[in-house]
C-alpha cells in the first residue's frame, strides 16, 4: 500500500517535471520567460553551494525564527493572561477582532518609515503577523479548559497559580502549538513579503527581486524551489513535534483560525 503510494507520488512528480521540460523544448512555452525544468533544477543544485544565496537564506531564516520567538514570548503569556480572566477576555475580544484582520503587509510602509534598520523592519512585521494566531489560539485553549478539572484541583486546596500551571496550561498546550504552526506559516509569508517590498540587502525575497530584475527566471524559480523546501521542512518538524508531544489530544489536527 505504502509502496504504491510512493510509486504514484514519484510518478506524479516525474510527469510534471517532464511535461514542464517538454513544454519548454517544444517551444510551447517561451523559455526566456519560463526556463527549462532541467535548467531550473541545475540552478537549484548550484545554489546550494552559492555562498551569496546561502547568506540570503540565512538572513530570511534569522528574521523568521527571531520574529517567531519574539511573537511567542509576547503573545503566549498575554493570551494566557487574557484567556484565564474571562472579563478581560470579553473586553479585549472586539479589539482583537478589529486588529487581527489588518494585513501585516499593509503595515510595512509605516514600519519602514519608523524603523531605519532593514532586518528590524522585517522582524517587526513577522512579530505582528505571527502574534495573532498565537494570541487567539492561546486564549481559545485556555477558555476551553475543562472546568471540572479546574474545580477538582481547587477542591484539593490548590491556588489559582497551581491550577494554571498544572491543569490550564497543559490542556491548552496543544492549541498553543497549533497557533505556533499557523504562525510559522504566516511568518514565512510575511518575511518574504517584507523582503520583496523593502528591497533590502539580504533574504530570499531580496535575492528573487534581484534575479527577477535581471530577468533571470531560472534563478527565481530555483530560489522558489528552496523556499518551498524551507516551508515543507518547517511544517514537517512542527507536525512531528505536535504528534510526539500531544499524542493524547484530538484537537491537534483541528486548525483554528
Amino acid at each position: 500500500m505504502i509502496r504504491r503510494r510512493v510509486a504514484r507520488g514519484a510518478t506524479g512528480v516525474a510527469v510534471l517535471l517532464i511535461a514542464a521540460e517538454l513544454a519548454g523544448r517544444t517551444g510551447l512555452v517561451d523559455t526566456s520567460l519560463l526556463p527549462l525544468m532541467s535548467t531550473v533544477l541545475a540552478r537549484a543544485a548550484e545554489l546550494v553551494a552559492d555562498p551569496a544565496f546561502l547568506a540570503d537564506v540565512w538572513g530570511t531564516l534569522i528574521v523568521w525564527a527571531a520574529g517567531l520567538l519574539i511573537a511567542v514570548v509576547i503573545a503566549v503569556p498575554l493570551g494566557t493572561l487574557l484567556g484565564s480572566l474571562p472579563r478581560a477576555e470579553t473586553a479585549t475580544r472586539p479589539l482583537v477582532e478589529f486588529l487581527r484582520p489588518i494585513p501585516s503587509v499593509a503595515l510595512l510602509p509605516l514600519i519602514t518609515l519608523l524603523i531605519p534598520d532593514d532586518s528590524a523592519i522585517k522582524m517587526t512585521a513577522v512579530v505582528y503577523a505571527a502574534a495573532w494566531p498565537l494570541l487567539v489560539n492561546t486564549m481559545y485553549g485556555l477558555r476551553d479548559v475543562d472546568p471540572i478539572a479546574k474545580e477538582t484541583m481547587r477542591s484539593f486546596g490548590f491556588g489559582r497559580l497551581a491550577v494554571l500551571a498544572r491543569v490550564s496550561l497543559p490542556s491548552a498546550a496543544p492549541f498553543v502549538l497549533t497557533g505556533v504552526r499557523l504562525a510559522t506559516a504566516v511568518g514565512l509569508i510575511v518575511a518574504v513579503s517584507a523582503e520583496l517590498i523593502t528591497g533590502g540587502t539580504a533574504g530570499v525575497g531580496a535575492f528573487m527581486i534581484r534575479a527577477g530584475a535581471g530577468f533571470r527566471t531560472d534563478l527565481v524559480l530555483a530560489a522558489t524551489l528552496w523556499a518551498g523546501v524551507l516551508g515543507l521542512v518547517a511544517n514537517a518538524l512542527l507536525l512531528e513535534l505536535q504528534r510526539r508531544a500531544f499524542r493524547w489530544h484530538a484537537a491537534t489536527s483541528g486548525e483554528l483560525s
Partner: peptide
C-alpha cells in the same frame, strides 16, 4: 502549499 505565495511574485512579474 509549502511555497510562501509572495515568493512567486517576482516570477509572476516577469511572466
Amino acid at each position: 502549499r509549502a511555497i510562501p505565495p509572495p515568493a512567486l511574485v517576482p516570477l509572476f512579474i516577469v511572466i
